[in-house]
Amino acid sequence: MSDWIIETIGLSKSYKGRYAVTDLNLRIRPGDIYGFLGPNGAGKTTTIRMLLGLIKPTLGSVQLFGKPLHKARLEILRQVGSLVEYPSYYGHLTATENLEAIRRIIDVPKSRIGEVLEIVGLAKEARRAVKGYSLGMKQRLGIASALLGQPKLLILDEPTNGLDPSGILEIRELIKSMPSKYGITVLISSHLLSEVEQMAGTVGIIRNGALVFQDSMPSLRRQAQSSISLRVSEPERALAKLKGGGLNATLAPASGFIELASCRDDEVALIVRGLMERGHDIYRVEERRKSLEDLFLQIVEGGKPS
């Protein structure tokens, strides 16, 4: 038995000699929310299709719940709920009937339909034909279908695609509650870090089919460096003084801020005291974090994080 809910070993997929996914070693631990990130076309959906047995890997293997997918597919899929790309639905049926069509296959009690509709907040709309639903409602119905079989693992491919901000927020809150409320492990893919930033415990970043980062969210945060910005009177003179002291400082002409690379508390205190002693008025001292999104873009666009 391995300790991972999802473990892929050297997972690769090639189409006509070109690799869409190369040597992927994903590791997802029970109870985690795993943010699977990468730009469009990086291989996220291809990977997810392999995780669900929809396509066969060219090389490598997928283990879910410690069992090889190619040997125990049906047994594994009974414990997995998924939403791949766009939610699928039968437009002429109501939400209840759509869920009933799935329920008949996976054989769970009828009462489960009402429960999942309640969870995703569609209980009031359950009797309407789905073709009249908004995109957000369809997305929620997709999540309801994924939850229907009381899965231990939820695989969601870009579940907030095409939603408006309030819809995104709603789905995010819903997913966030999965591990604590229902003990479900979640893999969620996205092309935006900001979307999973607030819920993911672990992130994996894929670029051109290869995993370039896989670690906890706090560890990613630590890598986003911070800088100090100062706004003072007579900035040119202050800049010259700071540079004379051997500090790496620059002046942003538009805003008039002097920017200093990451500084420790005592260094900042020293700098501020020095400037005041030389008669500068100090209007602002701000810490600026390089946003995670910047770091993410840097990882996605070129090589390893620094």
Partner: peptide, 12 residues
């Protein structure tokens, strides 16, 4: 329509 094969075939 819209990923129906994916949904059906990722069921057991």
């Amino acid at each position: 329509g819209s990923g129906g094969w994916k949904q059906l075939l990722s069921l057991p």
